[in-house]
Amino acid sequence: MHGLGFEVRHERDGDGSVDLLRKVETLMELEEVVRRDGDGKYRPLRGERNLVQGWFYWAKSSEELREVLEVIYPGAVGNWEAEREGRLVQGDWKGAAKRQMGRVQKLIENGEKSVERAEKELCQARCGKSPLWAGKTCRAEVGRIPLACVEPCPIFWDVALASGS
């Protein structure tokens, strides 16, 4: 129907007809799709397990497919390649916290518990990425790009700070 290329859609939308799905025409439009949850609220955590359904994007080349994946799961393809080539660098949360501003830096001294809680509340409960920095592992399976998280994200720091207050 579209010529050669790659059709990208939500896994839960299955193999059904594209006629039932909304065609997303541009990467900017796709960005708007993935940046909102089902209620239209801001979805800052791209790995969160609430990616909306009901759309598809037709990527005309492998380069465009890469751009599409970059919008949906930023950095995932690069991490996957780095992992396969044995050059994936992963640190710990303290190293990442050192590069942040004052309040987050303070977690290094007395925030161990807050960080553990945030890992449970955010990473385990809501995010589909595997936090390598928290000792989790992440292996590629056939037909699946692994979603590695190599360092805590800004939302993680927000949750850790809120959990300590």
Partner: peptide, 20 residues
């Protein structure tokens, strides 16, 4: 071309990792 951010995704590191 990528956009990367300090306080949202893609992070600077993500923006770099995705490059060819």
């Amino acid at each position: 071309v990528r956009a990367g951010f300090w306080k949202e995704e893609p992070s600077f590191a993500d923006a770099l990792r995705g490059l060819q």
